[in-house]
Simulated assay, not measured.
Amino acid sequence: MTELIDRLLKRLDRTVETRARRSARTHGRRSFMARAGAALVGVAISPVLPFDRRARAQEAGEDACEYWKHCALDGNLCSTSGGSLTSCPPGSEASAVSWVGTCRNPEDDKDYLVSYNDCCGKAGVSSATFCYTSQGERPGYRMGLYNDINWCMANANTGYHCTVSVVVGLADA
C-alpha cells in the first residue's frame, strides 16, 4: 500500500514540477505578480463592496422595514446605504446618543430591547430605504424613547446618514 502511495506522490511531484517549469518559460514573474496582486486586492475589497440586502428580505416575503428589529425605527436603513444592520457605513460614525425600542421577535415570541443609533458625518443617500415604523413611540419630551430627533447633535459632525438597530438584550417582563 505504501509503495502505491509513493508512486502516486512521485507522479504528482513530477507533474507539478513539469507544469511549473512550462509556466515559468511562458510567463514572466511580473505578469504573475500583477495577476496575483489583482486577485488579492479583489478578495480584500469584496467585503467592502455594497450590495442590496433588500432582495433577501423580499425573497423571505417581508419588506425590509417590517423586519422585527425595525419596530421603532424612523430613518434610512444603513443596510441599504453602504453599512449593515448593525454597523455604520464607511465615512460615518455612530451617534453618541440613541433611542431604545422594545420589539417582539416572532421566531421566539420574546420582547427585546433594541438600540437605534444614527450614523453621522456623511451625506444622505437617496437610494436608501426609508422606514417609519414607530411602534410605541413616545412624545418628544421623553428623549430616550423619541425617534424624531436628530441624534447626531451630540457628535462633532451633525449630518445624518442612516440608522442601525442593535439588540441590547431581553426586555424585562
Rank of each mutant, 00 (worst) to 15 (best):
R11S: 02
L12Q: 01
D13C: 08
D13G: 02
R14Y: 01
R14N: 04
R14Q: 10
R14A: 01
R14T: 09
T15N: 08
T15R: 05
V16A: 12
V16W: 09
E17T: 12
E17D: 15
E17C: 01
T18R: 10
T18Q: 07
T18S: 11
T18P: 02
R19M: 06
R19H: 13
R19V: 15
A20V: 15
A20R: 02
A20G: 09
R21V: 08
R22I: 00
R22W: 13
A24M: 11
A24G: 15
A24W: 09
T26Y: 14
T26F: 14
H27R: 12
H27I: 12
H27F: 03
R29D: 12
R29T: 11
R30D: 13
R30P: 09
S31F: 09
S31K: 10
S31E: 13
F32Q: 14
M33S: 10
M33N: 11
M33P: 04
M33Y: 15
A34P: 06
A34K: 03
R35C: 09
R35F: 14
G37K: 03
G37P: 00
G37N: 04
A38W: 14
A39Y: 13
A39D: 11
A39K: 03
L40S: 05
L40V: 10
L40D: 07
L40E: 12
V41Q: 12
G42W: 08
G42Q: 00
G42H: 01
G42F: 11
V43Y: 08
V43K: 00
V43W: 08
V43A: 07
A44P: 01
A44L: 05
A44I: 13
A44Q: 02
A44D: 00
I45C: 14
I45L: 14
I45H: 07
S46W: 10
P47C: 06
P47F: 10
V48E: 11
V48T: 12
V48I: 15
V48R: 02
V48C: 06
L49Y: 13
L49E: 08
L49T: 06
P50T: 11
P50L: 14
D52Y: 06
D52H: 04
R53Y: 05
R53P: 00
R53F: 12
R53L: 14
R54W: 13
A55Q: 02
A55V: 03
A55K: 01
A55C: 00
R56I: 05
A57I: 07
A57C: 00
A57V: 01
Q58N: 05
Q58C: 04
Q58Y: 14
Q58L: 06
E59D: 07
E59F: 07
A60H: 02
A60Q: 00
A60S: 01
G61D: 01
G61S: 03
G61N: 02
E62C: 04
D63E: 11
D63Q: 02
A64Q: 08
A64N: 05
